[in-house]
């Protein structure tokens, strides 16, 4: 364990936000989880007792008959906003007095920074560059993320869980989003910050970043393993593998989605377009860890090779 190296990374002023995320995301996840649990208990209680459901105010917050449903913005909301602004200002001021924004040497195109890292919030995409070509990691994935996020409200056909925290009523949606947000985005930012050293080499947590260290690895392409040498053969083979993956994964997901009572009900509410778009994004998302795994475990670089692009 090289504590010095660890401290150098942790205490770099530009890495402070990432250290902050390490606390903030778990904290807010816990806050949401706690409220979701409370609501889920209430939902279970009301489902079991239709008579109570008719009279209950249906929130986990205190309630007395005669209480108004609404309160005045001034002062009840605005004092909270004022307080929030005040606290943020104090935090920001202390942070700005104690930590200086870094300034490196004057830019020099002839002296490459090693490692040359993108700003921390894009490290997830930079991490993908290891496993995918730039046109995928740098262009297609960001586009898919933006389009995929925008598609969420239009493919989520589940009407429950609007305006309150819940886990039970929205298992699929929440699992999918957390997979995308926490595993594919936040965790990648952490890997990029803490584990990627000079040469973008993966260093174990706390290992010294030795700029001369180059792990020995010979990457192969999937068609090579099957001794396919002709260009046409590789292109067709890759298309088959990718197509097969989509079919098999789509089928498995379909089985999973249509299996149980509630999921099936939601599935029945979906139009074909909604369903296919959802399937496409799910299958694509799952493909990322799979590609990472086959690279790390089997040193496979490309699955699909064509004269124009490689996947």
């Amino acid at each position: 364990m090289d504590w010095h190296q660890l401290w150098a990374i942790l205490s770099a002023p530009d890495n402070i936000p990432i250290v902050a995320i390490a606390f903030l995301v778990p904290f807010y996840s816990w806050l949401a989880f706690r409220q979701a649990r409370a609501n889920d208990r209430l939902i279970a209680q009301l489902e079991a007792d239709p008579q109570l459901a008719k009279t209950h105010h249906r929130k986990t917050y205190p309630w007395k008959p005669g209480w108004l449903k609404e309160v005045h913005t001034w002062p009840y909301l605005m004092r909270m906003e004022f307080l929030a602004a005040l606290i943020v200002t104090v935090i920001l001021t202390i942070w700005s007095i104690t930590l200086n924004a870094p300034l490196e040497e004057l830019s020099n195109p002839n002296l490459t920074m090693n490692p040359a890292k993108a700003p921390w919030y894009f490290l997830g995409l930079q991490e993908m560059l290891v496993y995918f070509d730039p046109w995928l990691a740098g262009v297609v994935f960001p586009t898919l993320i933006i389009v995929g996020l925008m598609a969420i409200p239009y493919i989520d056909a589940n009407p429950l869980g609007s305006g309150y925290y819940t886990l039970k009523q929205r298992k699929w949606a929440i699992a999918t989003f957390c997979f995308g947000f926490i595993v594919l985005w936040i965790v990648m930012v952490f890997i990029g910050t803490f584990l990627r050293g000079p040469g973008w080499v993966l260093f174990r947590f706390g290992r010294t970043w030795d700029p001369t260290y180059q792990p020995y690895a010979v990457n192969r392409d999937l068609p090579d393993i099957f001794h396919i040498t002709s260009m046409t053969g590789k292109a067709i083979f890759g298309a088959l593998v990718v197509g097969l993956y989509f079919l098999v994964m789509g089928y498995l997901l379909h089985r999973l989605i249509t299996r149980k009572g509630f999921n099936r009900k939601i599935y029945e509410r979906m139009s074909l377009i909604q369903y296919l778009v959802m399937q496409f994004f799910l299958i694509t998302m799952i493909a990322l860890p799979i590609k990472i795994a086959i690279r790390l475990l089997f040193n496979i670089k490309y699955v699909w090779i064509t004269p124009w692009f490689n996947v």
């Binding site: 995301v25 807010y28 949401a32 979701a36 969420i152 409200p153 989520d156 009407p159 429950l160 869980g161 609007s162 305006g163 309150y164 925290y165 819940t166 929205r170 949606a173 929440i174 989003f177 947000f181």
Partner: peptide, 12 residues
């Protein structure tokens, strides 16, 4: 964004 998602606030 995380909170808007978790409260299902993007729904109709």
């Amino acid at each position: 964004m995380f909170r808007v998602f978790l409260t299902g606030s993007y729904k109709k």
